[in-house]
Design a protein around this nucleic acid. Structure first.
Length: 150
DNA sequence: GCCAACGTTGGC
DNA sequence: GCCAACGTTGGC
């Protein structure tokens, strides 16, 4: 009997994230140098839950906080969340990320705040959250900005 | 369970 | 380096 529907794998949809790092602690240059890093030290439950929601190969905008104040690159999730080995009490998680692509130019926080399509972006609504989910549209808007002269 | 004190994040 | 915002802790 012909014509049955092929099963389409459902795990091909990537999700989008923004991860913050102080570049003088760990920058995108450091990630490129190291090839892979463990995203550890997250001590906020919402940020931790976001780490736990990350799936292999998800895209993560890499944001430099404190200095730079700009999205500089895209990283990808290379290992999903596992418990963090730590002396700290509590139930924490880590993922691993790898470098993917440096943006053509950094996209600054100032630009993000000024862009009408990014008015509801999590990083503005929750400025102290270090791991934030993005919609595909928000992700694409930032990528488009990076491909447009400042 | 409330709330004051404290610590941390992160923009300025 | 300062400080506002806000999450967490701990005394009551």
């Amino acid at each position: 009997m012909p014509g049955h529907l092929e099963h389409t794998p459902q795990n091909t949809t990537s999700m989008y994230w923004l991860i913050k790092s102080e570049p003088f602690v760990f920058s995108y240059d450091d990630l490129e140098r190291d090839g892979v890093t463990t995203w550890d030290g997250v001590r906020n439950y919402q940020a931790r839950n976001n780490l736990r929601a990350m799936k292999l190969d998800d895209y993560c905008l890499f944001y430099h906080s404190n200095e730079g104040l700009a999205v500089v690159a895209i990283a990808r999730v290379s290992k999903e969340a596992v418990p963090e080995i730590t002396e700290d009490k509590g139930d924490w998680s880590v993922v691993e990320v790898v470098p993917h692509q440096r943006l053509a130019r950094p996209v600054t926080l100032k630009e993000i705040k000024a862009h009408p399509e990014l008015a509801n972006i999590g990083m503005i609504k929750f400025p102290r959250l270090s791991v934030i989910s993005l919609t595909e549209a928000e992700f694409n808007t930032i990528i488009d900005l990076s491909n447009t002269p400042a």
